[in-house]
Amino acid sequence: MSDLLYMVLVAPFKDMAGAPAFLVEVLIGGVFAGLMYSLVALGFVLIYKASGVFNFAQGVMVLFAALTLVGLLERGAPVVVALALTVAVMVGLAYAIERVVLRPLVNQPQIILFMATIGLNFFLEGFGEMAWGANVKKLDIGIPDRSFIVRGVQINELELTAAVTAAVLVTLLALFFQTTRIGRALRAVADDHEAALSIGIPLKTIWVVVWSVAGVVAIVAGLMWGAKSGVQFSLSLIALKALPVLILGGFESVPGAIVGGLIIGVGEKLGEVYWGPLVGGAIENWFAYVLALAFLLVRPQGLFGEKIIERV
């Protein structure tokens, strides 16, 4: 009995302390994974805030963006051109979604819109594979997947680039929301869409903007993840990891998506490396869900779930 306690509660920390450089490496790996989850979760949050739609297709949007990018690169487009075209495709997709899916379903109950995004999910998956092929592809954006060593800690160049890019993207988004006219309008719609309409903010424009932003976020996530592990169907499954992130961070909170992603990414890597051997490994696959479940019981609105302002 005390053996078991020792193995669970003491030994892992001794291991950590014993090899700090390795611990740092594990943490960095966790942060990298976490940022990817954050990016996907961020796409969810933006769309949910501005339109109340839970976008089931967010994961497939990541796959679709990555497929498009790879497809263009394979056809010989320079990286910058391919990126610009992919952005154009995602913005076009946002327009199409607003026109074909959202507009006709305005005023329908939330569940109908959710179903519509499930349809969108299958459409994008099929369409993406039809257009670009279904085999696993290598995405090479010119950043080598190699490591350098700083004070005994191995740092992967690709992961570092990804982390910095994600951080920059998140900062830009925050600035966009806080300081621009459209950003302010987006927050207004998230707060009270009827009042936003009453002062002439066109919801259609706002929807196109959020879906476009979610599309761009998907490109970055697809780019980083795809460069790491190839572009293939499983890319869309990182969306499944975004769900626990959302539960942790709150569906309506941008900072929540970021912090939630980091907690899950770091948590599952630590769990896998230090506690995994105790249960035969594969903690990574379920850790996020258990954490989210535990969290749900304690704080259902999430870490940063927006406060509901109650007045009398």
């Binding site: 302010r184 927050r187 207004a188 009270d192 009042a195 009453s198 302002i309």
Partner: peptide
Amino acid sequence: QVMEGRHVFEHL
């Protein structure tokens, strides 16, 4: 229109 029940954007 100024809607009934005020409808300010509470978090702005």
